[in-house]
């Protein structure tokens, strides 16, 4: 464990807590894409298949349970909770996430570290995580007023993977044979997808104006 990875995990945890806070306290999911939340639930479900077979550390297991539990409960809230589901913007959240899942699955069948079920699912989860934010970014472009919690959620979600990139650089230079091209390329693509959001988020913070993405 290094400071970059810890910062990344804590930032990721905060993004999930910000979203749960928003949904649980004000019972609203306005501006949140259910498609992205469903993709994240799928990412964690396929990434953490080894949660009961390979024990890494208490920290690792607890964090996996938190990410699995929070992502599925957010999907449940947005689909089933009578108050929250009313604030879900079904008409605007129309990104067909099937067209993200299928290419990632096909790519994982071709590009993986080993052609086993677990390794293919692991590669799939990395490719899918890289693009899972797209429905959310599309929804942000469509909904004019982005409330603070939603903006903070997306910002933290992007920042966590940026911290991970520093973690991979650090581990590459400090651990022999630490090479994970699939993780590195997916993580880089994921972070780049946030680039324009970061740009507008930073400007709105600098000029102290409401976050507004160009149409």
């Amino acid at each position: 464990m290094n400071i970059f990875r810890l910062a990344g995990d804590m930032t990721h945890l905060m993004s999930v807590l910000v979203l749960l806070l928003k949904i649980h306290t004000i019972k609203s999911c306005a501006g949140i894409s259910l498609k992205t939340q469903e993709l994240y639930a799928l990412v964690f479900a396929t990434r953490y298949l080894d949660i009961f077979t390979d024990f890494i550390s208490v920290y690792n297991t607890i964090m996996k349970l938190i990410f699995l539990g929070s992502s599925f409960s957010i999907v449940w809230y947005m689909r089933r909770h009578k108050l929250v589901r009313r604030s879900y913007d079904k008409e605007q959240d129309t990104f067909r996430h099937f067209f993200l899942v299928l290419p990632c699955l096909l790519l994982a069948l071709v590009m993986n570290e080993k052609f086993t079920f677990k390794e293919v699912m692991w590669a799939f989860s990395l490719y899918l995580e890289a693009v899972a934010i797209l429905p959310q970014l599309v929804l942000l472009q469509r909904t004019k007023n982005i409330d603070n919690l939603t903006g903070q959620y997306v910002f933290l979600l992007g920042a966590y993977r940026a911290f991970y990139i520093f973690n991979w650089i650090y581990r590459y230079f400090t651990e022999p044979h630490y090479v994970h091209w699939i993780t590195w390329i997916s993580g880089l693509v994921q972070t780049l997808l946030y680039a324009d959001f970061f740009y507008y988020y930073f400007n709105s913070w600098k000029n102290n104006v409401k976050l507004h993405l160009p149409a």
Binding site: H12, K64, T183
Partner: peptide
């Protein structure tokens, strides 16, 4: 068979 190192990252 060459066992892959454990995935220790989240």
């Amino acid at each position: 068979n060459m066992e892959l190192p454990l995935k220790d990252e989240l």
